[in-house]
Nucleic acid binder design. Structure first.
Lengths: 222, 222
DNA sequence: ATTTAATTTTATGGATCCACAAATATCGAG
DNA sequence: CTCGATATTTGTGGATCCATAAAATTAAAT
């Protein structure tokens, strides 16, 4: 997709995420096109893509509105990621792990081990953790070797807060956040262990549990 | 979406399903537009939607090609449906079933009971079963009450053979197919039982198993 | 003859135009 | 003043036009 359209799509995504376009707000082609300094065409294209992603929905016979996401929807998005990544982990555990994947996973665990050992959790390290976390999840996905699963997860990740990377780091309580990272790291270790041992059921269950870290672990760590 | 675009999308879906556009085939806007008797605009729109659905993929810098689906992909699509519908069943089982849902499920089971009791499995009854089956799955989905899950399943169903309704009915072996329907009916009954009893874990597992009926049950029933 | 450079062809992305449908505003009648 | 009918505005979907970037073909040079 040409530059313009791609950029319109990602700008719209950002705007919706950041609430610049409120849930329920009418999305009209012309105003947005003018605002972005493009013609209606790429905006129309973007609307279709964003509709597929679940960020927009058709409003009656005419036009789109920003879809409103309930708290329930967010939880569901996280559960969906849980079952899908669980499936990926299971599939990876069901066959021998390639040397390449093993190295990548080991490197990943080592990197987060270093991070956790440091003990402090400054603003700067958030980015590092986020990077490592993303790497971890994409290695598993790659190890599952299924385009279908990768696609399903990618689509789900478009939902706000559903992606594995969107652990909202509360900079007000750095110690609680650090605890979360410690736990996530431990879970990563256990998942890798299960995969190496070919324990596919355990790998799946651990990965499903791991998805909940963003929503269910908060209250015990304050 | 206006009639034309919708119809282009569904026509293209059909054509790809039926192999009229082979995997890997270049999809060019103008020829298809002419073939369908429309301008390039709705075709361009359709390509974007079909790309999101995973039926097309970008070919290098320019244009789309039909994505090729491996046997592995089909199996994965079915597993994905399994975990997603399993999640739906679990969520439905986790809360009290509304009177409306109870009635719908009962009616559905009764209808398939009648079908199975007949004992014969003529061509004509395939449509009936397909209808009942679809009803069953959409009641569960509705009962889960999650738009996110519904969306994820809808997207996954675009993959060939991934949808719950695509039990390929082999008219060469009607008795084997009839056995499959019998089993599916039994599984439906067990799932409903688990949901009524609030046994969410069992409901999830049964639904996951139920997804496999299309691929794993064939060899024992010939 | 083969490879490379240049030119032509072709296909896509973006802009604009047009027609139609839906929403809104205006006007008239009760 | 309110309700309804009609007119006007507004916004979307589809068609067409234009510019640009690939692809293909031809030409040229070694």
């Amino acid at each position: 997709m040409s530059q313009v359209n791609q950029s319109v799509i990602s700008q719209l995504r950002r705007f919706i995420r950041d609430g610049a376009f409120q849930p329920g707000a009418k999305m009209q082609e012309l105003p947005i096109a003018e605002q972005f300094g493009v013609s209606r065409t790429p905006v129309r294209m973007a609307f279709r893509v964003l509709e597929q992603e679940g960020l927009l929905e058709r409003s009656g016979k005419k036009g789109f509105v920003v879809r409103s996401i309930s708290q329930e929807d967010v939880v569901c998005g996280i559960e969906i990621r849980g079952v899908l990544e669980g499936l990926a982990a299971r599939r990876m555990a069901e066959k021998p792990v390639t040397e390449q994947h093993r190295q990548q996973l080991n490197a990943c665990l080592q990197d987060s081990e270093v991070l956790v050992r440091k003990g402090d959790f400054t603003e700067a390290l958030i980015a590092d953790w986020s990077d490592i976390n993303q790497r971890f999840h994409s290695i598993i996905l790659d190890g599952a070797g299924s385009r279908a699963i990768a696609d399903a997860i990618a689509r789900n990740n478009h939902l706000p807060f559903a992606s594995a990377d969107s652990i909202i780091m509360d900079t007000q309580h750095p110690d609680a956040e650090f605890r979360k990272v410690e736990i996530a790291h431990l879970q990563h270790q256990l998942i890798v262990q299960a995969i190496y041992e070919g324990d596919s059921v355990r790998a799946e269950m651990l990965m499903r549990e791991h998805a909940y870290i963003g929503i269910k672990y908060g209250q015990f760590l304050g």
